[in-house]
Amino acid sequence: MKRPRGIGSSRFADASAPADTRLLAIAADHLKRFGPRQVTVVSIADAAGMTHANVYRYFPSKAALIDAVAGQWLRTLEALIADIADAPDPADDKLERLIQASARTHRDLLKEDRHLFDVYCAATETSRPLVRKHRARMRQLTERVLDEGIATGKFDPRDRERALAFITDASYRFINPLTVRLDAEVPQEVLDQRLAAVIRVILRALSVGNV
């Protein structure tokens, strides 16, 4: 299964790439190394070989640039989940993989790029547009798998909307960045066991019509 890769690095940015792409790669690298407070538009502009005024042609503020870095990571997650939703597997297998992939990807970001993860958490806490858009996209993908399961007889919920809410509510601890951060010190094997138990409950409830 493909996993989201790092967004980029100023040390490896392609000089022939569009300016906004290069700026995002540089900003992602600076954010990972220095944290959001130490990132400056001037340093990003210097690394890109342009004036800081030119950066503002593409991003109206430092906050907008950092949000764009987080948004790019969210789109890599959405692409991963879309690949699962579009796969030829049975719907129950796809739903299990979908939840596991989202949980694992969140956990990986927490371990590999804490500064970007904290930006994501702050955007979630304030319900910024990039997070609202991401939630809507993830809901669409989950709906697609749920509807496929209903059509093929894998799932038999009493109420479609309640079933969709149940999937989200039951898996919330493992896919919301704020709760993922709270579990930062919990061993991975413990989280894997808990998530596996939750997924079994979700699939069982959907298949026998408990929701």
Rank of each mutant, 00 (worst) to 15 (best):
K2H: 05
K2W: 04
P4A: 02
P4C: 02
S9I: 13
R11M: 15
R11I: 14
A13I: 09
A15N: 03
A15R: 01
S16Q: 11
A17I: 03
L23P: 00
A25P: 05
I26E: 00
A28T: 00
A28E: 00
D29K: 04
D29Y: 06
H30E: 14
R33E: 14
P36Y: 06
R37A: 15
V39H: 12
T40C: 10
T40P: 11
T40K: 06
S43P: 12
A45C: 09
A47M: 08
G49S: 10
M50T: 07
T51N: 13
T51A: 12
A53K: 15
N54C: 14
V55S: 15
V55W: 15
F59R: 01
F59M: 03
K62Y: 12
A63C: 04
A63T: 02
A64G: 00
A64V: 00
D67K: 04
V69N: 06
R75N: 02
A79G: 00
L80E: 06
I81H: 00
A82Y: 01
K94S: 14
K94Y: 13
R97W: 11
S102H: 11
A103S: 14
R104N: 15
D108E: 07
L109G: 00
L110C: 12
K111G: 08
E112Q: 11
D113S: 07
C121R: 08
A123I: 00
T124C: 02
T124Y: 03
E125S: 06
T126A: 09
T126Q: 10
S127P: 00
P129E: 03
P129G: 03
V131H: 03
R132L: 06
K133R: 05
R135F: 07
R135N: 07
R139D: 04
T142Q: 12
G149Y: 02
T152N: 07
K154A: 04
F155S: 08
F155T: 05
P157S: 04
R158I: 12
R160G: 06
A163D: 07
A170G: 01
L178W: 02
L178S: 05
V180W: 06
L182E: 09
A184P: 06
E185N: 12
E189P: 09
Q193D: 13
Q193E: 11
L195V: 01
L195H: 04
A196C: 10
V198M: 09
I202C: 08
R204D: 04
G209C: 12
G209W: 10
N210T: 15
V211S: 05
